[in-house]
């Protein structure tokens, strides 16, 4: 019978693969669903331009 630590080792390998696969599949799905313009449309300080005027 496998001891608990051997089971944990296999479990850790399996979970690593699951998390990795989730990230890669979602990455491919996202990149193929949205255009590059939308994905890279973030600009620094845009929210501040609306909410903070930097005036005393």
């Amino acid at each position: 019978m496998m001891d608990i630590w051997t089971v944990l080792e296999y479990g850790a390998w399996a979970l690593s693969v699951i998390f990795g696969a989730y990230i890669v599949l979602d990455w491919i799905k996202t990149d193929s669903t949205y255009s590059e313009e939308v994905l890279t449309s973030s600009r620094e300080g845009e929210l501040e331009a609306m909410t903070e005027q930097h005036k005393l």
């Binding site: 193929s32 669903t33 255009s35 939308v38 449309s41």
Partner: peptide, 14 residues
């Protein structure tokens, strides 16, 4: 593919 989904946002940010 690089086409926008039907109701995709125009801009995304954090």
């Amino acid at each position: 593919m690089a086409t926008s989904a039907t109701n995709a946002p125009e801009k995304v940010g954090l």
